[in-house]
Nucleic acid binder design. Sequence first.
DNA 1: ATGGTTGAAAGTCAA
Length: 271
Amino acid sequence: MQLKVTSWNINSVRLRIGLVCDFLTTHAPDILCLQETKTPDEQFPAKAFQQIGYGHLRFIGQKGYNGVAIVSKLPFSDHEAMTMCGRPDARHMSAVLGPGAGAASGIAIHNFYVPAGGDIPDPELNPKFAHKLAFLDELGVWGMTKRPSDRPAILLGDLNIAPYEHDVWSHKQLLDVVSHTPVETTALEALRADLGWTDAARSLRPEPEKLYSWWSYRAADWQASDRGRRLDHIWLSEGLKPTLQDLTFLREARGWQRPSDHVPVTVTLSL
DNA sequence: ATGGTTGAAAGTCAA
């Protein structure tokens, strides 16, 4: 079977439920992982997903900030929302595909929303940046000590870091801009490599090709200036690496009516 | 060096 999984920072799932449903009916991933849903659980638009064939939902949200969701055609056997950095931030949701998911059963999906980190790249001066670095530390500790290593897994989400030179429009100009500073990029790369994850995007489309998943709302013309960054990632555990068939950044989604500033990133696995 | 836009929310904070 083929398994299609999408990660998308939606920047309010209620505001963009129409776009999300259009995306699902057109591209039909088996699983969609959302970040920045900005929606308390009692207001999550579950029915809209259920009506178009996505009957298996796991979400955790807050009023106005953060929030993650896993929306799936395939059933789960288990799920968990980890509390990160001791805060009620709703920045993680995981689910394990259930026995009814065919060859995909047993695969764990980990959906993360890493803190953006504010503007000043100094943990002494900026508590948001300190929080981001602490979150990355905790992610590394979780990967080393808590994640079952015998279970195939996909780690994805808005990691808010563009790790490589060609993950940003100008490596030199962004070296002191939060999302591309050496302290962040080395921390992310270390925890990815040390834990044996494969970066799906760079596995199929290596540097120096430019790859972006986010373009600022502040650009006068995002398409013309094309000052993007690759902040959204899909990582595969060792065993899933040979199953990777395809990867797509849906750049056109940035040009939709009232778009998110992030576009959907999708992998297709052949199981 | 600064400003530019968006969302949730109802003045500002976060991104």
